[in-house]
Design a protein around this nucleic acid. Structure first.
Length: 429
DNA sequence: GCTGATGCGTC
DNA sequence: GTCGGAC
DNA sequence: GTCCGACGACGCATCAGC
């Protein structure tokens, strides 16, 4: 009752979990700099501290009390306290990579869980995800790390990937995810064991390695990790040739990897996503991804939209493939449209609305949209991969689906069929 | 004690 | 994870 | 170029309802 109108709006959003302020931690860092100097000049200093101590509340208090310089001085990674991971950006072509990064190291991109391992001999091993959540309980394998590393303490960066019991191959993402659990870890870890593919080291024996360049860190890694256990070094190749990068990319894709990671050789470990130090290549113009083709699907219904989508009247829409007389769901589409395209699709869909679910639709309950539409609009959809789906009635779903185009030239009888989708699924293996 | 719906966190 | 928009 | 918040599938955990 004591709050003004604007405050009421934001306070009410807190328990709902949709604060939607338009700024986040990074902007707070800007603000902390402004607070002291009236510009962004202290941002680099603040950012460096934040990467190792990613808590704007703690930082702000320190800064308010002691000023930026003093508060940020000497903040280095501490084993046991999670550090923000270094993330990758995206570049379309290998030639642009070399232009931006010079000499690079090329690694396969593994489809697993990003894990930072914090180890202190005789004391603890902990695992943190890229969002700084502790997930040590997921990995009983970590207990034996002391036998496989030459150090008294370290922070390793790696990708944790399951090993399929039957095929002895790297498990797909869905299978690896079965290890993300609290209960029955012992049982599950027998079925799906985990390998840790290490590609970086941030701290060793009390020494901060974040400012060392990538090749130096890689050298330390090679001296630190012993062969034979579940801890493996990701293989890599140094090059400055765009042709070589492209070749490696195609090779890794054909071997079943997600793509490649390309890393600037003379760069420190800089958490976050900026600066063109790490770049990923999943599927570009140069070569084909797992799902090379797009598919044409029938729009079956749509939802109202929240936040910035609320004014469009569409937030996401349900799409399906043809199976004989039936239309079965395979995905919801919520990205790939410009604001204008959202307005456009709303104009069209509202004319196709129907009160009841059309008879030919087979839709599981939890996919019921706010509004049903009669089968009429066809859209072209891209995705990274087709997965077996326990929830979509087509039995197959799209991983990272996005809209490519409206297909006004097509009508529902020309949509992709379930049979065709199953064909594409088989092609992936 | 079971089941479907919802929440949370990974990609 | 993907994507588009604001700056 | 960077930052932000719309939205995706899916596996496990938890909870409401029976």
């Amino acid at each position: 009752q004591n709050l003004d109108q604007l405050s009421v709006k934001f306070v009410a959003r807190i328990p709902v979990g949709r604060l939607r302020l338009g700024f986040s931690d990074k902007t707070i860092l800007d603000a902390l700099s402004w607070m002291q100097t009236g510009d962004k000049s202290l941002k680099p200093l603040l950012e460096k501290a934040y990467q190792v101590l990613p808590d704007v509340g703690l930082l702000a208090r320190e800064i308010k009390e002691n000023g930026v310089e003093k508060a940020c001085q000497g903040i280095v990674p501490v084993v046991g306290i999670p550090v923000l991971p270094m993330l990758s950006q995206r570049i379309k072509s290998p030639s642009e990579m070399v232009e931006k990064m010079g000499e690079v190291d090329v690694e396969p991109k593994l489809d697993g869980l990003r894990i930072l391992i914090h180890f202190v001999r005789g004391k603890f091993v902990k695992a943190f995800t890229r969002n700084l959540n502790e997930t040590s309980h997921m990995f009983p394998e970590l207990a034996k790390i002391d036998k496989f590393v030459n150090c008294s303490s370290a922070i390793f960066d790696c990708e944790a990937v399951g090993l399929d019991e039957k095929t002895k191959m790297m498990a797909n993402f869905q299978t690896t995810m079965t290890r993300r659990r609290k209960h029955d870890i012992g049982e599950t870890s027998k079925k799906v064991s985990i390998d840790f593919f290490i590609f970086d080291i941030i701290s060793k024996d009390g020494k901060n390695l974040m400012d060392k360049n990538y090749l130096e860190r890689r050298k330390v890694l090679e001296e630190t990790v012993k062969k034979g256990g579940p801890f493996k070094l990701v293989f890599h190749e140094i090059t400055k040739s765009p042709e070589r990068i492209n070749k490696l990319y195609k090779k890794r894709i054909s071997e079943g990897y997600e793509g490649i990671m390309v890393k600037k050789v003379d760069s420190g470990y800089v958490p976050g996503r900026t600066g063109w130090r790490w770049v990923k290549m999943k599927q570009g113009e140069e070569a084909q991804g797992k799902l090379a083709d797009t598919i044409d699907v029938v729009v079956m219904g749509y939802t109202q939209g929240r936040g910035k989508r609320a004014s469009f009247g569409v937030g996401q829409f349900l799409v399906g493939v043809k199976d004989g007389d039936k239309i079965k769901t395979t995905s919801k589409i919520g990205t790939g449209l410009t604001d204008e395209e959202f307005r456009e699709i709303e104009r069209r869909l509202k004319n196709l609305r129907t009160k009841d679910k059309p008879k030919e639709y087979e839709v599981r309950k939890n996919y019921t949209p706010d509004f049903w539409v009669i089968p009429s609009l066809i859209v072209e959809i891209a995705a990274d991969e087709i997965t077996k789906s326990p929830t979509h009635t087509a039995g197959l779903a799209l991983r990272f689906p996005r809209l490519i185009n409206f297909r006004d030239d097509k009508d529902p009888s020309e949509a992709t069929t379930l049979r065709e989708l199953e064909g594409l699924f088989d092609l992936q293996k």
